[in-house]
Design a protein around this nucleic acid. Structure first.
Length: 842
RNA sequence: GCCGAAAUGGUGGAAUAGGUAGACACAAGGGACUUAAAAUCCCUUGCUCGCAAGGGCGUACGGGUUCAAUUCCCGUUUUCGGCACCA
């Protein structure tokens, strides 16, 4: 697309002011103690992973939003901390290293250079003196240090239970990194693998992580996702004796009240009692089943469409409430990782149990009065209890209470709480991450690397290839692995796993506060000066990953007295995704943009076949050739246009499609402003009342909308003002200066330039934000509507503040209303002051 | 399947303590300027009937509450996001 011809020299202006801000350190910030706490603001962007592809149009969206907000706050007298850095450990650089032999550090640092340059080209007001990168040893030294604090607090442990393993990435994954049974990063189906892992006890904080969600100003959707992920449920532990055996099975159930309907039990294949429960005659069948379910991937096991499978163990349990013998089955629809890995099955009222009972011909007993025949389908709604002895006639709530009391009285069970949240699998079998600072000593066990020996540097390797056996490339470097035990001095081996990419981002917001500190991860004074983060802006994809992990670490640091707040991010805003247009055939397949021709307005045709295509909204992707490159946009239209267009597209939080024609509209707006100042004479006279009113309305709306991050409507109001200005010959100074100030946060380069041309020096960024006069924002002439039976029949312009009787009389006399009122009886008259009159007739 | 969010002109989107639907922008059409084009400026633009005055319809769909519903309530559909045998 050709850039439009223009007089507006954005390139010159943008280069000039970016240099000015750099040279004057305009946005460097210090912890000035004279500024009161409520005038200190910490505004944070989610830092990017510096990928080789460079900045995506999605990045500037959130960054522009926070930049506008920060510049607005500065002009309103706030001390604003607004830093940027790089989440620079991660798989892409390492995979590139495997392919090319280039050290991930080389690739990463080159990419960081590029990212920094790109980010700077948008004119964001970051304090670059505070830039951090998580892969640098002066940063990861403290990541390791925090890990040791967790280790010392018994929040890190070694586990040998099977974990999610990605064959393509050749590493273990956390539960949070598995989406629909696939690796979140590469889409490979995840398998279960038994390897040694370091795991963090995030479950120990499940209750706090849940409860404190109530105290943060976050989108409800994100809070809900975290609540669901933590998945707290209240129920009961119930003990079942095993017939003829000195063993008992503990189950977890949320519906202890349905115990009379428990007709069999199921244990997960991995349950520790399986062997003991298996009778000789069932041994072969059980072993075969255990083997076959071990072979299944998690996806296969949890696939709902799959038929239930299982095998009878040969043993029976005794239902504690009625003494009945019920068979114990082994089936993989019960998960070892939730509850106790064993359940009581109530097939009449649980779909899963019902399917299993039908398949294996197990009895189904109705215990909740059902509206269907429970022999033909499960009844999962509420119902009055039946066939339940002392619970008969009770509702759900009362029956649960009664049963719990009964169980506790007979010492057969008790109230219990369970969480879906699992501990965090924290080790990765890869190279490009923080080495876990632990040493395995044959005599002392696992010990932490002493803090004065940090950072434990990532060693150089000759091959980045992961072994795939569950060992990281570090395991191959004997001289690094072999070390002496920091406690006893004997021969020991280093831990060779590295940390996941999430580690560095768990605390980076704290390091910005004190990035040079080589004594502490952050000084207490600086932490107290700025924390918590007042506004955190980023993509919704981190709703449960980064945001849950960071909250967890923060709470640990809080409990250790190392930070002053229990939550790190007071307010969170998710920016919506910037999507793109794509073209769809009738069979719903998508056609790359370069294979499409626009025959006439909004009629799109596939070049090869002539098929008419439908324009749809899709994610930007290389394969669809609809990716927008920010560098190209900036060079053709300028950073100010890019920034303002991304804000003008629509509300920050929703996803919206990129349209370059829309960008051109914003460009034209900026060009119009530039020409306005070029062509009109600035006069020192007061503006007309009408213009002055528009001016004050604009100040009011832009102030309010900027403060609430409603940038799209603020921009449209500025457009209204500029349209008004084009109607007058001259440019009153007060209007010109106010407009420039309002534009400052949005298009800082252009605004600085115009500010200078208006005769000011010293830059715009600390100039006071304009104030409006409320009386000047209201019209004294307003348009009122007269309705008959709720339909607008006439509109009149009247002066503001007329009395009810007065306007009612006007309405009744209105010519246009006459024919609608004629011959009718007035039933009701409604007057809304300064808005409307509605006459109801029969 | 469950949970959540959303649905407004040709397009992106405005407007909800219930009170003139479509601000602003794009696209489209017309005009001015120009030898011409680009750029720029001005006008029109929800659909529909009508020469016009004016009328009817219209905020995914179907109901309801109300003098009045994009806004509140009930139901349905579609799209997007999350979860997925969590007992």
């Amino acid at each position: 697309m050709m850039a439009p011809m223009s007089k507006y020299p954005f390139h010159e202006i943008e280069t000039k002011w970016q240099r000015y801000w750099d040279e004057h350190q305009s946005f460097a910030v210090t912890e000035d103690p004279s500024i009161p706490k409520d005038k200190r603001v910490y505004v944070l962007d989610m830092f990017p992973y510096p990928s080789g592809a460079g900045l995506h149009v999605g990045h500037p969206e959130g960054y522009t939003a926070t930049d506008i907000y920060c510049r607005f706050l500065r002009m309103n007298g706030y001390n604003v901390l607004h830093p940027m850095g790089f989440d620079s450990f991660g798989l892409p650089a390492e995979n590139y290293a495997i392919k090319t032999g280039t050290h991930p550090r080389t690739t990463t640092e080159k990419n960081i250079e590029n990212f920094r340059k790109q980010i700077k080209s948008l004119g964001f007001s970051y304090d670059w003196n505070r830039e951090i990168s998580t892969h640098r040893s002066d940063y990861y030294r403290w990541t390791q240090w925090i890990f040791i604090q967790l280790f010392n607090k018994n929040l890190a442990y070694e586990s040998h239970t099977p974990i999610n393993w990605c064959e393509a990435c050749k590493t273990g994954l956390a539960n949070e990194e598995v989406k629909e049974g696939k690796c979140e990063r590469c889409g490979t189906t995840v398998v279960r693998k038994n390897i040694r892992q370091w795991v963090l006890k995030i479950t120990e904080y499940a209750d706090k992580l849940l409860a404190d969600l109530d105290s943060v100003d976050w989108p409800e959707s994100v809070k809900l996702m975290q609540r669901n992920w933590i998945g707290r449920s209240e129920g009961a532990s119930v003990f079942f004796k095993v017939d003829g055996m000195d063993a008992q099975l503990e189950v977890y159930t949320t519906r202890a009240d349905t115990l009379f309907g428990a007709t069999y039990m199921v244990v997960a294949p991995e349950h520790p009692l399986v062997a003991q429960l298996t009778k000789a005659e069932q041994k072969e069948a059980v072993e075969e089943y255990l083997e076959s379910s071990a072979r299944k991937s998690d996806l296969e096991r949890t696939d709902l469409a799959k038929e239930k499978t299982g095998v009878f163990s040969g043993s029976y349990a005794i239902n504690p409430v009625n003494g009945k013998l019920i068979p114990i089955w082994v089936a993989d629809y019960v998960l070892i990782s939730y509850g106790t890995g064993a359940i009581m099955a109530v097939p009449a009222h649980d779909t899963r149990d019902w399917e299993f009972a039908k398949k294996f011909d197990l009895p189904i007993v109705e215990v909740l009065k059902s509206e269907v025949d429970v022999q033909t389908q499960a009844w999962t709604e509420d119902g009055v209890h039946v066939n339940s002895d002392f619970l008969d006639g009770l509702n759900k709530e009362d029956a649960i209470k009664t049963m719990l009391a009964w169980l506790e009285e007979h010492k057969l069970g008790s109230k219990a709480v369970n969480y879906k949240l699992r501990d965090w699998i924290f080790s990765r079998q890869r190279y490009w991450g923080e080495p876990i600072p632990l040493v395995h000593c044959p005599t002392c066990g696992t010990v932490a690397v002493p803090e004065d020996q940090l950072p434990l540097l990532l060693p150089e390797v000759s091959s980045y290839e992961p072994s795939g056996t569950g060992e990281s490339p570090l395991a191959k470097i004997d001289e690094w692995v072999n070390c002496s035990c920091p406690v006893c001095g004997g021969k020991a081996k280093r831990e060779t796993n590295t940390m996941p990419q999430w580690a560095g981002s768990c605390w980076y917001y704290l390091r910005y506060l004190d990035p040079e500190n080589d004594k502490q991860f952050v000084s207490a004074e600086k932490e107290a000066y700025w924390m918590p983060v007042d506004l955190y802006v980023g993509g919704a994809e981190h709703a449960v990953l980064h945001l849950l992990y960071a909250r967890f670490w923060h709470k640990v640091l809080f409990d250790l007295g190392l930070v002053s707040t229990s939550e790190p991010f007071k307010r969170l805003v998710n920016q919506g995704m910037i999507t793109s247009y794509a073209f769809q055939r009738k069979d719903k397949s998508l056609v790359p943009t370069d294979m499409v021709e626009e025959k006439e307005t909004d009629v799109f045709v596939e070049k090869a076949t002539g098929e008419v295509l439908e324009r749809v909204i899709a994610k930007m992707s290389k394969s669809l050739k609809n990716v927008i490159n920010p560098d190209e946009i900036i060079s053709e239209y300028g950073a100010d246009s890019m920034r303002m267009y991304e804000m003008f597209m629509g509300p920050l939080e929703v996803s919206k499609p990129w349209a370059t024609t829309g960008l051109v509209g914003v460009y034209r707006f900026l060009d119009r402003i530039y020409r306005l100042f070029e062509e009109r004479t600035v006069i020192d006279e007061q503006p007309s009342d009408e213009l002055n009113r528009t001016l004050h309305k604009t100040i009011k709306k832009v102030t309010y909308d900027t403060n609430t991050l409603n940038f799209n409507t603020a921009i449209s109001q500025m457009m209204v003002l500029v349209n008004e200005l084009y109607k007058v010959e001259t440019l009153p100074r007060v209007v010109a200066e106010t407009l420039v100030k309002l534009l400052g946060p949005y298009v800082p380069h252009l605004a600085e330039e115009l500010w200078e041309r208006l005769g000011h020096s010293g830059g715009l960024s600390t100039v006071a934000w304009p104030q409006f006069v409320e009386e000047l924002t209201v019209d004294n002439q307003i348009e009122m509507v007269f309705q008959v039976n709720g339909k607008v029949r006439s509109k009149v312009t009247v002066s503001k503040g007329l009395g009810k009787d007065e306007v009612l009389a006007m309405a009744k006399k209105d010519e246009k209303l006459a024919s609608w009122l004629e011959g009718r009886t007035i039933v009701k008259e409604i007057v809304v002051a300064d808005k409307l009159v509605n006459i109801v007739v029969k």
